[in-house]
Amino acid sequence: MRILVTGATGNVGRIVVERLLEAGAAVRALCRNPSQASLPQDVEVVEGDLSRPESLRQALVGVERMHLFPFAATASEVADLAEEAGVRRVVVMSSGAVTAGRDTGVHLPVERAVEASGMEWTHVRPGEFMLNKLWLWGPSIRAERVVRDPFPDLSWHPVHERDIADVATAALLEDGHQSAAYTVNGPEFISRRDQVRAIAEAIGQDVRLEVVTPAQAREMYLAQGGFAAANAGFLTGFEKYAREQAERSQAGKTEPVASGPVPTAEKVTGRPARTFGDWVRDHAEDFA
């Protein structure tokens, strides 16, 4: 069975590749720059780009299942090409924003395009990535052992990237996941303040938490660049959803809006979902 993994060099895609190889699957990885992919030697790396659907024709030959990274602009064309090539199952790397009705047009068009095809489909909808804290706080922790944040008591259930990959891999390899949309969160409702404490404990050094205003944080994130700059408005409450979260936190309403436990990877994998402490231990060197 040959499986095509798009987004194979991403934070989740690399782990999906790793898991599929462990399961004995034949893995083909779609990459814009194959020479820079740095994937295991057993992976067949092919050149292609979701923004240019025609570049996928050769990559899809002989493929039975596909892990699909979301690219809304060409989603219908990619789905048509996959179905035409004989792909029978597609697992979409989507977002929990779809479940919450807050998708910005990035993920929902991809889900709908795949659903409209004749292929089996499964959507994996992760919530907040634990990795976000590495991209956001990593530079200041490494340089100054400090985290500057405007909403230290804002809490949610961040998810480990390996749990996301495990769900996607199960949906690719196992039967019984067809026409399912899995929202994947972490097992703990944990504040940013407690996340900073967990990072300090993992690296064995004090990390100071400095509370700043949203405006100060926004300017800091814009100057930092990368993930922080791209999400500065959302992270600091200048965009609607984040503003609502921040207002709830400031009012002391820190419990999840939805009643009952949030869904985690355990529903699919049968194993307890990884905690924030697990994730920090996995990434301690990245912070240190």
Score class of each variant (00 low, 15 high):
residue 81 L to S: 03
residue 38 S to K: 12
residue 125 R to M: 12
residue 287 F to C: 04
residue 43 V to D: 04
residue 2 R to I: 06
residue 182 Y to P: 01
residue 57 R to P: 04
residue 187 P to N: 13
residue 39 L to Y: 00
residue 209 L to N: 09
residue 147 V to F: 01
residue 4 L to D: 01
residue 185 N to G: 06
residue 44 E to A: 07
residue 147 V to W: 00
residue 285 E to S: 15
residue 271 R to N: 12
residue 113 A to C: 08
residue 185 N to F: 09
residue 106 V to D: 03
residue 146 V to P: 00
residue 251 A to V: 09
residue 166 D to T: 08
residue 29 A to P: 00
residue 14 R to E: 03
residue 27 V to I: 06
residue 89 R to F: 12
residue 246 A to V: 03
residue 86 G to C: 07
residue 60 L to V: 00
residue 237 G to Q: 02
residue 31 C to K: 01
residue 102 R to V: 13
residue 181 A to I: 01
residue 11 N to L: 13
residue 45 V to P: 00
residue 288 A to T: 13
residue 207 V to I: 12
residue 164 I to Y: 07
residue 142 R to L: 04
residue 131 L to I: 07
residue 207 V to H: 02
residue 24 G to P: 07
residue 149 D to F: 04
residue 125 R to L: 13
residue 249 S to G: 08
residue 217 A to W: 12
residue 68 L to H: 10
residue 109 P to N: 12
residue 149 D to R: 01
residue 263 P to Q: 11
residue 287 F to V: 08
residue 107 H to F: 15
residue 214 P to D: 02
residue 119 M to C: 03
residue 108 L to P: 05
residue 197 R to D: 07
residue 189 F to T: 06
residue 26 A to L: 08
residue 136 L to D: 09
residue 130 M to F: 14
residue 220 M to R: 14
residue 221 Y to G: 10
residue 265 A to H: 06
residue 275 T to A: 02
residue 23 A to T: 14
residue 13 G to N: 10
residue 140 S to A: 13
residue 276 F to H: 05
residue 278 D to H: 11
residue 168 A to D: 05
residue 178 Q to P: 01
residue 68 L to K: 08
residue 115 E to I: 12
residue 259 S to P: 03
residue 76 S to A: 15
residue 79 A to C: 07
residue 171 A to T: 06
residue 202 A to Q: 04
residue 151 F to S: 09
residue 91 V to G: 00
residue 250 Q to M: 14
residue 88 R to L: 08
residue 27 V to H: 01
residue 117 S to F: 09
residue 20 L to N: 04
residue 274 R to T: 02
residue 190 I to L: 06
residue 41 Q to S: 14
residue 93 M to A: 11
residue 224 Q to W: 03
residue 233 G to A: 10
residue 161 E to V: 15
residue 210 E to R: 05
residue 230 A to E: 15
residue 171 A to H: 05
residue 245 Q to S: 07
residue 152 P to R: 14
residue 172 L to T: 05
residue 165 A to H: 09
residue 85 A to P: 02
residue 100 A to M: 11
residue 96 G to W: 04
residue 32 R to P: 06
residue 52 R to Q: 13
residue 10 G to A: 07
residue 283 H to D: 00
residue 135 W to S: 12
residue 180 A to H: 14
residue 110 V to S: 02
residue 87 V to L: 05
residue 20 L to E: 02
residue 110 V to R: 04
residue 7 G to W: 11
residue 159 V to Y: 07
residue 63 V to G: 04
residue 154 L to R: 10
residue 82 A to H: 03
residue 191 S to E: 05
residue 221 Y to Q: 11
